[in-house]
Design a protein around this nucleic acid. Structure first.
Lengths: 180, 180
DNA sequence: CTCAATTTTCAGAAATTTCTGAAACTTCAT
DNA sequence: ATGAAGTTTCAGAAATTTCTGAAAATTGAG
């Protein structure tokens, strides 16, 4: 590994824990991401000096996150891994996966808590707060689902609009008002 | 704690680690969030059966995340904590804080890596990949900054539009084309 | 300033998570 | 079928993170 690659890989290792993946997994991804060709498990283990089994675990997790994909070369039985190229696709995958892991469970807990029949002052207040939270999350995820369905080009355009989002909103608002 | 509150608190404890805060911190926040009145550290320690010092640490972290705020009652020297009520405000704070912790460091690492003068095939490819990543993140955060500046009401409206985002986009597109 | 109430710090204990090496398993060419 | 190449599993070792109790620091009333 060159110093440039080493710095990148080690940064991903450090950030890994903040992103909910562990250090090893972060480094493996980083290495695959910058590699000019797909890598197999042994090459990864050697480059990062991890045990072969640790790499196996890490790759399994990256596959679960759908951040790497498998490739095969004819005449070689080993599995090779590469990181998908379309950056927006990666972004979308990440967002989707995080939503599934970090938001969905809470949403279902809230739903069932809100169905409970309670009577104490305290519980009624708690339910009101939970209802606020539920509404917010629901609204956010609905919007997110929608944005997620956009193709990379459109998404990129939406982002590119940046500073004009609120102007656009004002405009849409006036437009609607004129119609009524 | 009633069973309803207990369930909510314990869920936040379990999710805490997925959200980059620890179990204790998650539970403390949950308790404050549903509480009908501000709580002091001793009340929290008693309700959750944590050591007093653990609660102190947890509250400090929640303050760093700007998820709780301090209140004082006259004639009582203790500090009381409550969770801000405006859900969108909370959402915005959370997003901002996560951006600062999870994205900003990577962005600055990428910037400095891209300034390095390299010549090997391998490093040139790595830099190209890093450039992709940098562009994407930059674009995303610029957009996010912008959205973040919107007040709660506008943000809520934007989200509420949901399925119409892309229609709006098409519209803006045509509008622009007409002008040129 | 003094002192009691309260909060914070911190070293080490406890718990959790990550990592390893050895063994088990799978796959496929012969 | 056999066995060589490759992958996965898993029990326990290593590392990291969290939690505690005791002690230190801070705060504000008198």
């Amino acid at each position: 590994m060159t110093p440039l690659v080493r710095a990148f890989v080690s940064h991903f290792g450090e950030m890994g824990s903040r992103w909910g993946i562990n250090r090893t997994v972060g480094q493996i991804y980083a290495l695959i991401y910058v590699s000019p060709r797909p890598l197999n498990a042994d090459e990864i283990a050697e480059a990062l000096e991890f045990s072969r089994s640790n790499v196996s675990m890490g790759l399994k997790e990256l596959q679960a996150w759908r951040l790497v994909c498998l490739r095969h070369f004819s005449g070689d039985r080993r599995e090779y891994f590469e990181a998908p190229g379309d950056a927006w696709e990666v972004f979308r995958t990440l967002a989707e996966e995080r939503r599934r892991r970090e938001i969905e469970p809470t949403l279902s807990m809230l739903r069932s808590s809100l169905l409970e029949d309670v009577s104490s002052e305290e519980d009624l207040h708690a339910q009101a707060r939970m209802r606020d939270m539920h509404t917010l999350i629901e609204q956010f995820t609905t919007w997110f689902d929608d944005v997620q369905r956009l193709d990379s080009a459109t998404l990129s355009k939406l982002m590119g609009m940046g500073a004009t989002v609120h102007k656009l909103l004002d405009f849409a608002d006036k437009f609607k008002r004129n119609k009524n």
